[in-house]
Amino acid sequence: MIPPQFEYYAPSSVDEAVALLRRFDGEAKVLAGGHSLIPLMKLRLAEPKALVDINRIPNLAYLREEDGYLWIGATTRTGDLLDSALLRKSYPILTDAAQEIADPLVRNLGTVGGNVCHGDPGNDLPACMLALGAVLSVAGPAGPREIAAAEFYRDTFVTALEPTEILTEVRIPKARSHQGNAYQKIEKRVGDFAIAGAAANLVVDAAGRVETAGIALTGVGPTVVHATAAAAALVGEVPSETHLANAARLAETATDPSGDLRGPVAYKRAMAGVLARRALERALARAKGGS
């Protein structure tokens, strides 16, 4: 399988990259990790006129906690998430999710930005972004703008990102004490697309009462599913098994899966519920200081 011809550009700044995207007016694609794009091109399902390789732009790969946020640069490799002691300690949901992404070789090139903005409902990081309340920073011809993850995902492969824009970083509210989060996923085989996945983030007060909750689901709808009603049902509660089961049921009803090789609709929906409950249990245990 051979990709069609294209022009190749390796800009050294975001502005230069945006100018190139603008020049090709939607017919250029951003090349980051390339592990979704290049196979699509080899299958000739994508035939961009030009590729804008953002891997050579300095200072676009980082992972740091400051000013009340965790900042992750767009070309940070998903494998780097797995290696981060900070994430393992304070944002274990991202460690969980990174471990689920494809395989270690793919993670050495696949980027956080690509996983977040590709718009594939099977990607693992979008659910985490929704659960964590992340904000995505975007650069475009009209300058930089920010988009809440909650506003970003529109449909399969359709996001709020314009073809002339580049996702530059994500910022996630800094982890608080008594915060816990987790990502759970099942697949037919490791590295396959999810049957279903669930991301959960909980902040509780000293008494164990939920202050903030975020729940989102992978692979059970045309796009990542933001289970807001499920999360809302937990806020203000000291979650019991019944509360968690109820939230999981609400998460289940938010899904809109399609049947495929990974299972029929009823199964996927049920799995979304099971995984939401498991992710919540794990998140709650972590919020209470467990692992």
Binding site: I186, I195, R262, G263, P264, Y267, A270, M271
Partner: peptide, 11 residues
């Protein structure tokens, strides 16, 4: 034997 086949039996 996909997981969904087993799940269907269980349910």
């Amino acid at each position: 034997i996909h997981p969904w086949k087993v799940w269907q039996i269980l349910h």
